[in-house]
Design a protein around this nucleic acid. Structure first.
Length: 271
DNA sequence: ATGGGCACCTGGCTGC
DNA sequence: TGCAGCCAGGTGCCCA
C-alpha cells in the first residue's frame, strides 16, 4: 500500500495527535507482525511522552523521551486516529492509547508491517543505517544516481526501487517517475547518461512531491490518519493503465513483469 | 558485490 | 454459489 507519499501523509495526519502527548498504554492484540512485537514492548510506551513523529524512507519514527519506536506499514497497513472507545476491526493489531482514551490504531490485514523499538540513535538501527538519501532532500540528485549506477546492470526500475540507492520509491511511483523521465524501465542502470539521470532524479522528486500534495494514492484501501483516501490516483499516467492510451502520444500503455512486480510504460515515449 | 528469486500473509477479484 | 487461481502499494534474506 504505502510508498513515501502515503507514509508522509500518514505522518502528517497522526503527528498533531501524538506530539507532546503522554501515552497511557500500548494495547497489542496481535504480536505476529513481520517481526513479532516483543513481549516487553508495552513498557516502553506506558507513561512515556512522544516528542516528535518523523519519517525515514517508509519508516515512521515515534521519538519519545526514552527511545524511538520504528513503525512500518508494510503493504496493507494503516494508522488511524480514533476517538476513545472505538471497537477494533478484524486486523487492528495494536493501539497507542493516549491519556484521554484517544488512540492511534494500526490495522494491517497482511501483517507485513512492523513495530520495533530502539534506545539508541535510530539512524544507527540496522534497518535504517544502510538506507540511501531521502528523495525530497537536496543530497538526492542526478549525480548521486549516476555515480551509484556505475557498473550496475540491473534494470533502472529495480535500481530506483532499491532503498539503498534512494528511499521511498515503490512500485507505483517507480513506473510514474520513469514515464515522466522518458526512460524505458528495462534499461540497465549503468547505461543511462548523466543528463538522463538528472532528468530521472527531477522526475522522482516531482512525482513524490505531487503525490504528497494530493495526500497519496488510493488504489484499494489506502487511508490517511483520519480515514481519507489519497487523490493522486487520478494523476497516475501509466500505473495500472495497461492498454489505455498514453496521455502524451496515445500509444497503448504496456504492462510487463520485472522481479515479480508489475511495470507499466509507454513504449513510444520511454526509450 | 551483484542480481534474482522467495518468503512472509490476507483479501479481493476473475473465471469456470 | 462455490471455489481455485491469481494479483496486490514492501523488503529482508538466501543463493549462485
Amino acid at each position: 500500500m504505502p510508498e513515501l507519499p502515503e507514509v508522509e501523509t500518514t505522518r502528517r495526519g497522526i503527528a498533531p495527535w501524538l506530539e507532546t502527548r503522554r501515552i497511557r498504554t500500548l494495547l497489542v492484540r496481535e504480536r505476529r507482525l513481520r517481526w513479532p512485537i516483543p513481549a516487553g514492548m508495552e513498557r516502553h510506551f506506558a507513561g512515556n511522552v512522544v516528542t516528535q513523529v518523523r519519517r525515514r524512507g517508509k519508516y515512521l519514527l515515534l521519538q519519545t523521551r526514552t527511545g524511538t519506536a520504528l513503525l512500518h506499514l508494510g503493504m496493507s497497513g494503516n494508522l488511524r486516529v480514533l476517538p476513545a472507545v472505538t471497537a477494533p476491526g478484524k486486523h487492528a493489531h495494536y493501539d497507542i492509547v493516549l491519556e484521554n482514551g484517544e488512540c492511534v490504531r494500526f490495522t494491517d490485514p497482511r501483517r507485513f508491517g512492523s513495530l520495533l523499538w530502539t534506545d539508541e540513535d535510530p539512524a544507527r538501527h540496522p534497518l535504517l543505517a544502510e538506507l540511501g538519501p531521502e528523495p525530497l532532500e537536496p543530497e538526492f540528485d542526478g549525480e548521486h544516481l549516476w555515480r551509484r549506477a556505475r557498473g550496475r546492470r540491473v534494470a533502472i526500475k529495480a535500481f530506483i526501487m532499491n532503498a539503498a540507492i534512494v528511499v521511498g520509491v515503490g512500485n507505483i511511483y517507480a513506473s510514474e517517475s520513469l514515464f515522466r523521465a522518458g526512460l524505458n524501465p528495462r534499461r540497465a542502470a549503468g547505461r543511462i547518461s548523466r543528463s538522463d539521470m538528472e532528468r530521472l532524479a527531477r522526475s522522482i522528486r516531482e512525482v513524490l512531491e505531487d503525490a504528497v500534495a494530493c495526500g497519496g494514492t488510493t488504489l484499494r484501501d489506502f487511508r490517511d490518519g483520519h480515514g481519507e483516501p489519497g487523490y493522486f490516483t487520478a494523476e497516475l499516467r501509466v500505473y495500472d493503465r495497461a492498454g489505455l492510451p498514453c496521455p502524451e502520444c496515445g500509444t497503448p500503455i504496456r504492462h510487463l513483469v520485472q522481479g515479480q512486480r508489475s511495470t507499466y510504460f509507454c513504449p513510444r515515449c520511454q526509450r
